[in-house]
Each structure stands twice: as structure tokens, then as C-alpha cells.
Amino acid sequence: MHDVLTSRLSRRQALRLLAVPVLLSVLPGLAFAGAYDDYFSAVKLDNIKLVRSLLQRGFDPNTVEEERGETGLIIAVREDAGKVFDLLLNTKDVNLDARARNGDTALMMAAYKGRYDVAKALLDKGAEPNQTGWAALHYAAAVGNNQIVQLLLDHSAYIDAESPNQTTPIMMAARGGHILTVKLLLDEGADLTLKNGAGMTALDFARVGGFKDIVEGLTYRLKKAGKL
């Protein structure tokens, strides 16, 4: 009887030992079952304590949110979550140039929001200013932020970058009526003769927008260059 009980106990112990590796393989998934929602909520609320805790437990900083296809870094810029942005910026293996579903990067978001400090921090860390299609310089020009325009140009941003329909940064500046940005881009060598997919130049955008000062300035520049 004693031998039978011993045999049964041995089998149970063996089964338990065999179950350990299986349980351990499942634990990470169980541990992060609710981490996805917790992470993105914490990023939006600038909850650095929770974000740091999740990252320390192995949560991937390049995980993408389903709604817009954005990473935590992009969301932190969009939501002005400064503490979480700093944390993610300095997190190992974070992808600075990850693109959301609409093509935006963290740098493009910073340019659009006029966040010079954020844009500079990203560039200093090695973020790429030149992207295929829309780029950060388009966004900075569109909102007329000369500080960021100059910052991007100083980091080798392509001045005549073309969007998917061949729209350039100076066209965006002219479209928005940002005369000082138009002047800055011109002084830095932007090409006024370029046309987008609809056949429009920066001068055409200024005319459509009714920005007379820009129209006059661009017309003068084109005539001076013998291109009008």
C-alpha cells in the first residue's frame, strides 16, 4: 500500500514539474493581457510611473495603438505628455521614425504642433527629417513656424520635399498665407517654378488664397530671376 501511494505521489509531482514550463510560457501573455490598454491610457495621461513600470516588465515601446496606428512616442507628442515623451525618447530600441497609419512620425507631429523643443530633442537623438511623401518640413511650413522650419533645414531637411501629389513646403506656406515662412524658404533656396500634381505653383496657391503681399513678393522674385 505504501509503495502504491508513493508511486501515485511521484506521478503527481512529475506532472506538476512538467506543467511548470508550460505555465511559464503562458505567464507573459497573462501578465500583459491588460497592459495594452493600460499603456496607451498611461501615455495619454502622462502617467510616467505606470509607463515606466510596464516597460521594465518587458512591454514593447514600439507597440502600435489600433485606432490610428500610432506608437506611444507619437501619442506622447500629440497629447503633450512631456514626461512620458522624455522617458520613451530615452528608451532602448524605441523607433524614433515609426510612422502612424496616416504616415505621421513623432517629428512630423512635433512640427505640426509647433513644438520646437520636442522637434529638437528628436533630431538630436537622430530622428530622420526626410520622409517619403509628407515630411516634417511640410507641416512646419503649413503652420508658419519659422523656428522649426530653420531647425529642420539645419538638420538637412530637403527644402523641396514633395508630398504624394508633389506639393512642396513653400506651396504649403503660401497656401497658409505665411509670408515670413515663404521668405525664409525662398532665402534658403526653395524652387518657385515647381508645380504639384494639379499644376499649381506656390504663386498659384497664394493667388487662390488671396494673399496679395505674397503674390507680389513671389512675382517680383520670379521676374528678378527671369522666370516670369
Rank of each mutant, 00 (worst) to 15 (best):
I148S: 11
M1F: 14
D80C: 07
G189C: 11
M108E: 05
A161K: 00
L151S: 03
E66F: 13
A98Y: 01
F59N: 00
G126A: 09
K83P: 01
K83Y: 02
A110V: 14
A106I: 11
R99K: 14
T219F: 03
G34M: 04
L18S: 09
G189H: 11
L203Y: 14
K125I: 05
L194R: 10
K223D: 15
K195R: 15
N130F: 07
D187L: 09
G133N: 12
Y139A: 14
T201F: 14
P28S: 06
T91M: 02
E67R: 12
V22L: 15
A111I: 04
L89F: 05
G103T: 08
R57S: 07
I179T: 09
R115W: 06
G69S: 11
S163D: 05
E188M: 07
R175K: 12
K92F: 15
R11C: 09
T71L: 06
L185G: 01
A173W: 00
D124F: 07
L107S: 01
R57Q: 11
A135W: 06
A161S: 14
L9H: 13
A110W: 07
I75A: 03
L5V: 10
A81Y: 00
A136E: 03
A31N: 09
N62F: 10
A119M: 02
D160R: 04
H2L: 15
V43K: 00
H155Q: 04
Q13N: 15
G226S: 13
N145A: 05
K113W: 04
D187V: 08
V215A: 07
L27G: 08
S41Q: 12
K212Q: 15
E188T: 09
G189F: 08
T201R: 09
G144P: 08
V26I: 15
K195S: 13
V64Y: 03
G210Q: 10
L194M: 14
V51Y: 01
R68C: 07
A127Q: 01
P129I: 00
A19F: 10
Q13C: 15
